[in-house]
């Protein structure tokens, strides 16, 4: 067998996947081919050197650096995963927007001075009425400037949902702001 054909057998031998027949062919060739014998020895030496390569250690601050670069806090208040909170906020935001839209007429009428409303209730509703009036005025202004926009009444549900989502976002940001770093200096040994 030619030396070129023997080469793959050397690699099979190094991988430990050589069958007996092939082993016999390789051994027979190596006994009379000095060049392949030397080649095989060097190949083995190289593979052994690779296998002996010592593990390389990263800098001592490696783990800290990784943790410092991790994205946003995973837990809110130390126990609620952020994605769960986002889901809750999303559902609540949508519900709020939907309810505000469904009952918008009643809400607005309520703030327009229904006789049976007490003075205290009116006082509490005043800020909301102010917001609604401001919103309507803004929408009218927008429509005046951009006549292609639909009537304010048609924009109200969209605005309601946007407000609900905005409020949810602000609340979430506030919660994030109170989040404390769970891992500040070094990894604890509780899991190792």
């Amino acid at each position: 067998m030619e030396c070129r054909q023997i080469h793959p057998l050397m690699h099979e031998a190094l991988s430990g996947t050589l069958v007996d027949e092939q082993r016999a062919v390789l051994d027979r060739h190596l006994t009379h081919c000095r060049a392949c014998q030397t080649d095989y020895t060097v190949l083995r030496a190289v593979v052994q050197a690779v296998a002996d390569a010592p593990p390389l250690q990263p800098s001592p601050a490696f783990t800290i650096k990784v943790l410092d670069r991790l994205p946003a806090p995973v837990l809110v208040f130390g126990r609620v995963p952020v994605r769960v909170l986002w889901a809750i906020v999303g559902v609540l935001g949508s519900l709020t927007g939907t309810v505000a839209w469904v009952y918008r007429t009643a809400i607005i009428r309520g703030f327009q001075g229904v006789p049976e409303m007490t003075a205290g209730t009116k006082a509490m509703a005043a800020p909301f009425q102010f917001v609604v009036n401001t919103l309507r005025a803004s929408l009218e202004g927008l429509r005046y400037r951009f006549p292609v926009l639909p009537e304010p009444q048609r924009l109200e549900p969209i605005v309601s949902v946007l407000i609900a989502v905005g409020v949810a976002f602000v609340i979430l940001k506030m919660i994030d702001g109170f989040q404390t770093a769970e891992f500040e200096s070094a990894p604890d040994e509780s899991y190792s």
Binding site: A53, P55, L56, Q57, P58, F62, T63, V66, L67, L70, V74, L75, R79, P81, V82, E182, F183, P187, D188, S190, Y191, S192
Partner: peptide
């Protein structure tokens, strides 16, 4: 959400990954 657990994973595999 436990960062400590992830820190332990990093400690355990950092040598292999860095090498």
């Amino acid at each position: 959400g436990s960062r400590s657990a992830f820190a332990t994973l990093v400690e355990r595999h950092k040598t292999a990954v860095f090498s």
